[in-house]
Design a protein around this nucleic acid. Structure first.
Lengths: 169, 169
DNA sequence: AGGGAATCGATACAAATGAAAACACCAAAA
DNA sequence: TTTTGGTGTTTTCATTTGTATCGATTCCCT
């Protein structure tokens, strides 16, 4: 028998069978999920934060007082997620939310002292776990991974037109 | 003023402020999400498939008749997702599900003629989109990205102990 | 054989997500 | 000034996802 057959005994075109495990979107999804789980577990147990909450906190911690919309742009989160995460953070006393004095529709999110403390404590944790991840790769691989992800993300962004917002595993 | 201050006017340790956009887990999540969205849209409009369904179909298409558990292992999906995706595929007439003759608990999933047709048509689509993604990177970057994701995923797998299963964006 | 633990798959229920609608407000035109 | 359309944010609701559980069956040990 010359022609290859797949597990069904059928002739699958003439080419290589499709291998999910070498399919980039699959690998990307699996890796992202695993990494997210690792971080989520740490954030949750150490600080009672979800990942969306952590992201919002990270943005406010860096840029200071922000509108929810601005947070969404910096954190690549849609407005619903920002709204919910912000509400949760306010409830926990990590953020304060007031009216934007210049715009009756707008809100302004800012750190409380408590939130600032959490922020300064959670950042080293995040960096630490990231460093642990980096340990699994060579310096060069890590650098390329970062660069490639950035490029790929941008490339997909172009393909799908203007960003529809989203994310946060 | 010698010591740097962040947007809050507070002294954040002595180091660089935390930049979410250069944080690997963040980038990974965003990229994975965008890519998943792109594929999901195509699968949905072209074949009425969700990503979990596509994964199950890909596994059966490659390995032939499989138990749901086996599918879950090959596709990195927990059993609930496999169960649901399989049910949906059976409902669409793409898969058949019968009793495992050797084990009263087990089921066996196998392709129908219809499912086989879909599979042979969806695989080129998937490869095509993947190729489009690859266009955004150099050959070397693409190769490293794949390799790095594999390594990273495995590394995280070790850190978090035996896999808890999951995934499918 | 017989009983208890483990496995396979489905189901139930709860939490997270996203799309669309609702709400409150602004701003520009008539 | 009233209307009209648009923007910022929250809320609602349907869908998706995950954890815990259940029923059925097999495996293992005595």
């Amino acid at each position: 028998m010359k022609t290859p057959k797949n597990a069904n005994g059928t002739h699958e075109s003439v080419t290589v069978p499709f291998e999910l495990e070498n399919f980039l979107p699959y690998r990307l999804s699996v890796t992202s999920h695993r990494v997210a789980r690792l971080f989520a577990a740490q954030y949750a147990t150490q600080f009672g934060l979800t990942i969306p909450e952590w992201r919002v906190l990270a943005v406010i911690g860096r840029f200071g007082t922000c509108s929810p919309t601005a947070v969404g742009e910096f954190a690549a989160m849609d407005k619903v997620k920002v709204s919910r995460a912000a509400a949760a953070l306010v409830a926990k006393g990590f953020l304060r939310q007031n009216q934007d004095p210049n715009d009756g529709r707008g809100r302004l999110l800012s750190m409380t002292r408590k939130g600032l403390t959490v922020h300064t404590n959670v950042v080293p944790l995040a960096r630490g776990i990231e460093a642990t991840l980096a340990d699994g790769l060579t310096k060069a691989e890590w650098a390329t991974l970062n660069k490639a992800l950035r490029k790929l993300s941008a490339h997909v962004g172009e393909l799908t037109g203007p960003d529809v917002g989203a994310t946060a595993d």
